[in-house]
Design a protein around this nucleic acid. Structure first.
Lengths: 213, 213
DNA sequence: ACCTTTCTATTCAACTTTGACTAGACTACT
DNA sequence: AGTAGTCTAGTCAAAGTTGAATAGAAAGGT
């Protein structure tokens, strides 16, 4: 699973109704262009695809109000909302070391009730621990990991990343349990969208230096 | 950059001459199906694409010796060798948090001289540190990261993963400097390929349980 | 008034990835 | 000797991703 659908669904949902360019801007505002494959092409493709599959409803809209070609606005259908929450829950639980998916999930985690968020993250920790156990058990030869030669270093790497991921999750759980952030049904949500016309303080300029990927 | 080309080039190179199914088996032997997109389709596609681009030379080979359709064997061209080392070096230095690329690079790191390996890994550490500095500098508002709400948690996550990646790299460097592993030009290399007919102790069965991705 | 740049919004072709499918040959059992 | 199962080897259509290209409108200079 890639992060793009979750991101697009979540972004459209926050607006109620949005066109591609708005999504693109929001994702940039969240820094998603840094950690996900949220390029224009992918966004428009996801919008069209999900419209075709009935998760989004496409409204044809007159030539845009501010220059450029006419734009299409999208809205979540019921199926879209269901899919959104399915992807959101999955992104928080599943450990497949896809950081972009987890990041997207964290970005929308406050759409869930606090208790469920904690529950999902705890399940995540368990999933990581299970993964770790199964990997160390299956991939370490009886005569010790040295037998793997430098290939064993890859295992080291993955395990260290898994441990650090688990540790971050535990700390995050603690912060949530201590009352951090505003979750679903707890009053004014933190909104991470740009209002029509609001300027984006983080507009594509982060890489300023360090642009050498 | 995806890891597949590096993996395929490296695997073909170790055999001297190999067909798709052999590659597929090697990658499975290394556990690459766990941490990379090395599915059959991708492997065959990469082989054909690179053959078309002159990095591999395709030999048509008679109906296989052991059942199944006729197979095509591939060999690295000079351009292929150059591309292999280019990708290998890039994979070790670049910090774009693609674990599969780094993993592939580590898997082939011993094809480089020990000194160069250390040099590249040190550059990697520097790249991570630069990335970290630029992110914290650009994305933290003046009034503290709390202003970002739960979005700030994503930054926490990325930074913790970066730190753990840097730490692993430093430890790996230490081990190499202390003489671990056998690098290019240091005698019998550690070979991670299966000989014709040798059985694969790690054949697709690792997920045994924990298969729920 | 004219030209250049920038912003808005999207499209497209080329490439890559996915997962299911095909199909021949050997293996083991009844 | 038939046949169910598995191993070998690869293909293909559908989906996703990338990066560049398009095109109208407004802003800003000369």
């Amino acid at each position: 699973m890639s992060a793009i659908r979750l991101l697009v669904l979540g972004a459209v949902r926050q607006h109620g109704r949005a066109h591609g360019y708005q999504i693109r801007n929001d994702l940039e505002f969240w820094g998603a262009h840094e950690w996900s494959n949220a390029k224009p092409g992918s966004i428009y493709h996801a919008l069209k695809q999900m419209a075709k599959q009935g998760e989004l409803l496409a409204h044809e809209v007159a030539p845009s109000t501010a220059g450029g070609p006419p734009r299409t606005e999208y809205e979540l259908t019921e199926a879209g909302v269901a899919e959104y929450f399915r992807l959101l829950r999955e992104s928080l639980v599943a450990y497949d070391q896809k950081m972009d998916v987890l990041s997207a999930g964290v970005g929308f985690i406050v759409d869930l009730p606090r208790a469920e968020a904690v529950e999902l993250l705890k399940e995540r920790v368990r999933a990581i621990e299970t993964w770790r156990a199964s990997v160390t058990e299956h991939y370490v030869p009886e005569d010790g990991p040295e037998q793997l030669g430098h290939i064993g270093e890859i295992m080291n790497l993955w395990i260290s990343q898994a441990d650090s991921g688990a540790e971050w999750t535990r700390e995050f759980i603690k912060r949530i349990e201590a009352g951090a952030h505003v979750f679903s049904g707890e009053g004014d949500p933190f909104v991470g969208v740009l209002a029509e016309g609001e300027e984006n303080p983080y507009a594509t300029g982060v890489p300023a230096e360090g642009d050498d990927d």
